[in-house]
């Protein structure tokens, strides 16, 4: 019984601290621009050699082209960014005014890039699904 009460107390403390963090404004969502996308890709993938970035209009994700035609996805997670090198199993497909990038990875949802103009050719890297 004492253990259960202690557990409830700890759960209450967790809720309070999370609410405090929210109330203190620790809920930023950084905007991703091309420079940041290149930086994130290079920092996460040693030797990637980021050259160009295609950034979603809403600043949440980007496709980055590296040396030797490699591609990487940069996507916002909380107030940080997560980077994935796109392997052979990844799929980039067109959808209306944007792209859908599917890394085929559990825990990483499909990412939509909203675009104002047609994407450059390197985006497709050999496979294009309409």
């Amino acid at each position: 019984m004492a253990g259960f009460v202690q557990l409830l107390g700890s759960a209450g403390a967790v809720a309070l601290l999370v609410a405090l963090a929210f109330a203190m404004g620790f809920r930023t969502a950084p905007w991703l621009d091309a420079a940041r996308a290149l930086e994130e890709a290079d920092a996460a993938l040693v030797g990637f050699g980021a050259e160009a970035a295609l950034v979603s209009a809403d600043g949440t994700a980007a496709l980055v082209r590296g040396g030797n035609g490699a591609r990487a996805l940069v996507v916002r997670r909380g107030d940080r960014f997560v980077v994935r090198r796109l392997g052979a199993e990844a799929r980039v497909t067109g959808c209306g005014d944007g792209l859908i990038v599917d890394c085929r990875e559990t825990g990483l949802r499909r990412v939509r890039l909203a675009l104002d103009a047609p994407p450059p050719a390197w985006t497709w890297a050999g496979h294009r699904a309409a």
Partner: peptide
């Protein structure tokens, strides 16, 4: 800083 690329697409930055 990324520079405006010559590729004809908005949202594209080129190092």
């Amino acid at each position: 800083p990324a520079q405006g690329g010559s590729e004809p697409a908005a949202g594209v930055g080129v190092r």
